[in-house]
């Protein structure tokens, strides 16, 4: 009963990765770390039994949205001030 160890581990990792993607100054690195965040989220949803949502997140969150973010940063300055 209750939260399993696997879920707890991933939830804690999620917080770490979320903070990390906002903490780094390089926007490309930020986008890539955000892809890791999305992938962990996908893993968590697959474990929760939401297979369709996990599939969507794997294609959209970890795939397309990373590419779109990097494509945008390509046209902007790569370094952020904070």
């Amino acid at each position: 009963m209750g939260l399993e160890l696997f879920n707890t581990l991933i939830l804690c990792l999620l917080v770490v990765v979320a903070v990390l993607s906002l903490w780094v100054r390089d926007l490309v690195v930020s986008a890539v770390v955000f892809a890791i965040y999305s992938f962990l989220m996908c893993l968590l949803w697959a474990e929760m039994g939401a297979v369709d949502v996990a599939f969507t997140e794997a294609t959209v969150g970890a795939g397309v949205s990373t590419v779109v973010l990097i494509a945008t940063v390509f046209n902007l300055k790569r370094k952020a001030k904070d």
């Binding site: 369709d52 996990a54 599939f55 969507t56 294609t59 959209v60 795939g63 397309v64 590419v67």
Partner: peptide, 25 residues
């Protein structure tokens, strides 16, 4: 496959469409 097989397995129009768009990307 994901698009057409979405009735009996995870998948559907959104996922298949995104995968297809990703191939062009």
């Amino acid at each position: 496959y994901v698009l057409a097989h979405g009735h009996v397995s995870p998948g559907g129009g959104f996922q298949g469409g995104v995968a297809m768009g990703a191939s062009f990307i």
